[in-house]
Simulated assay, not measured.
Amino acid sequence: MMLGVPDLTPAHPGVDVLGADCRIDSSVSVMRFGQRADVLCLADSVSLYAHTRLVLGDVVADPCVGIRIGARTIVNVGAYLSGEGGLEIGADVLIGPHAKLLSAGHAIDEGDVIIARNRITRAKITVEDGAWIGAGAIVLEGVTIGRGAVVAAGALVRQDVPAGMVAAGMPARLIRARRGEAWQQPETPPSGWRRVWSALASVWR
């Protein structure tokens, strides 16, 4: 037993596919209705900490509905993960406490004056391998967080964050590239990439 760490979990209500050695706190809740058996899938060694909320809504409303979480990803306490528009989280991702990933919303400029009666908007969120979403950050529908990218605590992300970049603020903007030897490997951008990141950063301002 490890204090504060969820126990190993062979199954959890609402989860369709659960890999080996996953840890899910008993307070984790799943909101879904409708019949599909492939919409909530966790790879090996995923950890979901206390009071995390996974929202799928009507799983037959749209073929994009679903949440997939890659191996060894950790979702800290109180996170809110919406798969209503599709949510793909890679391997070795860190999602901080009370972060919110919102893949659906409501149209506000059409139809009924009552917002709740307007159509639901949906767009997939993708978080690539090794990224970090800081505590209390909000990621909106349609955003991609690149491999190894960092979203600072409390940030509101409305645009893609390229691989290896750090985004902060409300609304978030790119503030710099990560430093260190890891970003000098061949699979990372070639020489001259800093000029590319500078150009991208100027678009965010």
Rank of each mutant, 00 (worst) to 15 (best):
D7A: 15
D7I: 15
L8M: 10
L8N: 08
P10G: 06
P10Y: 06
G14D: 06
V15W: 03
V17P: 00
G19T: 01
A20M: 04
R23Y: 06
I24D: 07
D25S: 12
V28F: 11
V30G: 08
M31R: 13
M31Y: 14
R32P: 02
F33D: 09
G34A: 00
A37G: 10
D38R: 05
L42E: 02
L42R: 03
A43Q: 10
A43E: 11
S47K: 04
S47T: 08
S47P: 06
A50C: 14
H51A: 14
T52G: 11
L56I: 05
G57I: 03
G57A: 05
G57Y: 03
G57N: 04
V59R: 00
V59W: 00
V60K: 10
A61P: 08
P63H: 02
C64V: 13
C64N: 14
V65E: 00
G70S: 04
A71Y: 09
R72M: 10
T73N: 01
I74Y: 13
I74T: 13
A79M: 04
A79N: 06
Y80T: 12
Y80I: 12
Y80M: 12
L81Q: 02
S82P: 07
G83E: 04
E84K: 11
G85I: 01
G85L: 05
G90C: 06
G90H: 07
D92F: 10
L94V: 13
L94H: 13
L94R: 14
P97Q: 11
L101N: 03
L102Y: 06
L102R: 08
H106K: 13
H106L: 13
A107F: 14
A107K: 15
E110K: 14
E110G: 12
V113N: 14
I115A: 12
R117P: 12
R117H: 13
R119Y: 15
R119S: 13
T121M: 12
A123D: 09
K124T: 05
V127D: 04
E128I: 08
G130K: 02
G130W: 01
I133L: 05
